[in-house]
Amino acid sequence: MNYLKQLILSCATVVVMGCETVAPWDREVLARPEMQLSTDPMGDALFEQVYLSKEASAGGYKTAGGGCGCN
C-alpha cells in the first residue's frame, strides 16, 4: 500500500503544481485522434480481456464490469 500512497501523492503534486491554462481554441492538438486516452476502444477491450484472463491483475482505469469464465 506504500506504493499506492506514493503514486497518489505524485499525482496530486502534479495537479497542485498547476498546469498551463489552455484556451479552447488552442486545443487542436489535444483533440487529435492519436491524443485520446483510448485511440481504439475495441482493441483496448480485446487486450483487457486477454490480460484479465491470463494474468492475476485487473483494473486501475475503470470498474471491473461483467464477469467471464476465463478467469
Binding site: V15, C19, V22, R27, L30, G59, K62
Partner: peptide, 12 residues
C-alpha cells in the same frame, strides 16, 4: 467495483 479518475490538461 468502484473507480475514481482525474484527467488533467497539462499544456496544449
Amino acid at each position: 467495483s468502484f473507480s475514481v479518475s482525474w484527467t488533467q490538461i497539462i499544456n496544449a
